[in-house]
Design a protein around this nucleic acid. Structure first.
Lengths: 147, 147
DNA sequence: ATATGAAGTGGGAAAAAGTGGGAAATAATA
DNA sequence: TATTATTTCCCACTTTTTCCCACTTCATAT
């Protein structure tokens, strides 16, 4: 399971280390796509097969209009890239994806169960603060609602 | 059953001893996560499987399509870590989790039945006083059937 | 009191992870 | 084709993490 948060440098050649703890599960080749929200998604090959099958299945339970689905698929498929992890665990993120989330020198790499997310480190810490607060509210709700 | 309260040092290498009484039940690898409120949760692998299944199982297999779910998963998975208990019973708490609850030199480690909680020792002693007062009332409420 | 063992703490050395950069290989351009 | 730029591969440095050993404290037993 892919979990945890890592802040890694993006060097002048655009290389980023995948956290060592992720490497075994990720394998040699990964799929990197624009994500939802201000981040990128990285899937293992296996996970990507599942995801892409689901997305392209027009009979799926996704409540998309056909046109919406086409556009969504263009978004997810058209801008996805298969990327190889080099011998010491680094990948290259395509420029058009880096641009999308404003990646420059430093990235937050997040394990979210069955996928990895890549964030601009600053955006990540901001988002973290927001979600932290939401979680507290949720806890509060649960606590008061339970009584 | 994990019970009891222990105050342990966090050394310069971020190591903390798990109470000896917890070790057998915890096993070799544990999952440490941001809890709710001002503490961290430690789960056994077995417990975590239950918890994580609940978290990631949504109505759709594509849980990432829902913004709320995305954020919650980011919170619970992205800020969790699988950590190994070393040969003499110590663990390493990731910096991003220490930061979250302001852990520095000393931690309160609390057994709470099927999980362990980690507190900033000061926060713990403050809360303890409050909770102690509330405990009686709470017991009363629980006994009278309110959930 | 002294010995014994278990638990917690500290620190040095080896290994691993992350980062940077040069040179070869490939592609692009003139 | 020659030249330049880009990508890939490999090596090296630095920092962090891991592993192992040792010291201390506390409780129990002799």
């Amino acid at each position: 399971m892919l979990i945890g948060e890592y802040i890694h440098t993006i060097d002048e050649k655009s290389r980023v280390s995948m956290p060592a703890k992720f490497r075994k599960e990720l394998g040699k080749k990964i799929i990197i796509t624009p994500g939802l929200g201000t981040c990128l998604f990285i899937f293992t090959n296996k996970e990507w097969e599942k995801v892409s099958k689901k997305l392209s299945d027009s009979d799926s339970d996704l409540s998309f209009l056909k046109a919406d689905q086409r556009n969504f698929n263009r978004y997810m498929f058209g801008r996805a890239a298969e990327v190889e992890i080099d011998s010491i665990g680094r990948i290259l993120i395509p420029d058009f994806l880096k641009e999308r989330i404003g990646l420059k020198n430093s990235a937050a790499i997040i394990g979210v169960g069955d996928r990895v997310e890549v964030w601009n480190d600053k955006t990540w810490s901001e988002n973290k603060a927001v979600v932290e607060k939401q979680a507290e509210d949720l806890a509060e709700k649960l606590a008061t609602g339970a009584k």
